[in-house]
Nucleic acid binder design. Structure first.
Lengths: 326, 326
DNA sequence: GTGAAAGCGCTAACAA
DNA sequence: TTGTTAGCGCTTTCAC
């Protein structure tokens, strides 16, 4: 900047004025043109770091998910990024790996980096980290998992009702023995989905068929999937409480020849691409794009200083065979 | 920092020394302890922006993919992020949406943000943007797609050989009429995979059965998939040139009852979770984790000033029915 | 072992 | 319309 000022025999502030687009009428057109010209010739790129330091905002936000390679979070992140791009923000994506310590450590690092805001999927015991973020006056929006006792915005769906409804539909179609497979993570959405399943089964008088298989995430995953396999194969239908457990289960099942034909599969989150054969697969759809957009809008409002804290629940849709075929 | 210095009646430089861990023997233990204590009490977070400005490195890198919601790129990004985390870097993820202008614009923004390096999946016509990055002396590693005429590191696989081999295997098993479905993007990996398919068909004397369906990405996708559907259904096997075209095709096929049982499906990239039923599904596996790790290692070496430019080709594996079952 | 002072590249109030 | 100046929060050399 100094360089281009010297070259044109003008001062740095004039150059700054032009380059940051605040020259409306304050700088003559002639000078303006010369500055722009010189900047292009020298392939000059403004140092945003210095600008951020000076003006006190980095135009950086962060999205902390448990694992970006999880399809649901990957899609959510994509939509947040596109919204952020339009508003002039870049996004740092972080994986917490479901780990409280990692979450906390990364949150501290982000605060150090002076991010303007954070959209986070809380880890199971992450209340303290969330509170720390709020204490540091960094705008925060939580998404997907509601965190009790933390006064941050929340965006998500009604997991209980969605599960209950979908399982009830299965029951009323004649699938009686329905078991559930869920990850062994103590997080609200999975717990809610389990409650929904249980209540649906009870309401249909099928309480003796309630069977919930908890799958540990990580090393033990394959074993945990294999152990109850015979029981699972013997049911009328299987309710997978999330995309991740479904895909992992399918990898295992593929080794024993796939899902039995008469069996119905219900899953939380879009599994349409998995409908390759005769298997009756259905799913509960969350409006990911809307959730992402809302999360970003809320964050932006918070950054701008507007906003009060709230909870935003989006509707889900049960996609059954019929919906799939039309 | 000033605050904590004042509170302890010492100078800012001493505080800085302690907090940045450069106090080895230069600061007394007593003072050190007091500083650390005070920092904790005041919930002090170092301003990395200022540090970056001063020392001239941001500890930020960026990964530019076409679309983070694409499973292959999501996984690649995950592994890069974990590698970066270990090395003390945070990563800005960007979607180019296969668009040269967006890529260029984002690259400029990243340079402004003073990122220490960029790992990029080039867009079809992105040579100029890549050259610009190199001219600005920002370390650059390209991945997945080789970009002719740009002297940047490249990490990827041998798409031609992998396709040729997998298609040949299918042919030798008796699947004769094999068609290929690919996205209508003019990018090296897809072109190479097509060449591999064609050469395999020719080598087996099946040139009259060569049929390549180009699917446009975006709005027209569903239509492009629907139009050749009857022809595709009539083949012995379908070779999908990428994960994305496969999943999109499956969404469409699910509406007409799924893949015919006698038909075999071959796909580039891991589709194991899709093996839900009787369909014979196979795939070509890229070692994503290794590719990601290598990309980051190369970038880090470049950042550290070591490194010469090179191409790194990783081996693929054909996963057939047998491998799937063991 | 500790402090004073300069400066990273930029912006913004104020002066000219 | 343009220039001068101070300072964002940190690191680092050099003197004490």
């Amino acid at each position: 900047m100094q360089d281009i000022a010297r070259r044109l025999n003008i001062s740095r502030s004039t150059v700054s004025l032009v380059l940051s687009g605040k020259s409306d009428g304050r700088v003559s057109e002639a000078v303006k043109k010369k500055v722009l010209q010189a900047a292009k010739e020298m392939d000059y790129h403004l140092n945003e770091l210095a600008r951020s330091l000076r003006v006190g905002s980095s135009n950086l936000i962060s999205v902390i998910v448990t694992d970006i390679s999880n399809e649901f979070f990957a899609q959510m992140t994509f939509h947040i990024q596109e919204a952020a791009k339009k508003a002039g923000y870049l996004v740092l994506t972080i994986n917490s790996n479901e780990n409280d310590q990692e979450f906390e450590q990364m949150a501290r690092l982000l605060i150090s980096k002076q991010v303007d805001g954070i959209i986070a999927v809380p880890t199971p015991g992450g209340q303290d980290s969330l509170r720390m973020i709020i204490d540091q006056k960094v705008p925060l929006v939580t998404v997907d998992r509601f965190c009790e006792g933390v006064s941050a915005d929340y965006v998500g769906v009604d997991n209980y009702e969605a599960s209950k409804k979908a399982v009830s539909e299965l029951l009323s179609e004649g699938f009686k023995k329905i078991c559930m497979m869920r990850l062994d993570l103590n997080i609200p959405p999975l717990n809610e989905r389990e409650r929904g399943y249980i209540d649906a089964m009870k309401a249909a008088g099928q309480q003796e068929h309630i069977a919930i298989h908890r799958i540990r995430f990580g090393e033990e995953m394959e074993r945990d999937l294999l152990v109850p396999l015979d029981d699972v194969m013997a049911t009328d239908a299987v309710f997978f409480s999330s995309h991740r457990v479904f895909t992992e289960a399918m990898k295992v099942v593929s080794k024993v020849g796939g899902v039995p034909q008469r069996q119905c599969v219900l899953c939380f989150d879009d599994v349409r691409p998995y409908v390759t054969g005769a298997t009756d697969i259905r799913y509960i759809e969350q409006p990911i794009a809307e959730i992402a957009q809302k999360s970003f809008d809320l964050l932006l409002a918070k950054i701008k200083g507007e906003a009060g804290t709230g909870r935003y629940i989006f509707p889900t849709r049960s996609i059954d065979r019929q919906s799939l075929l039309k």
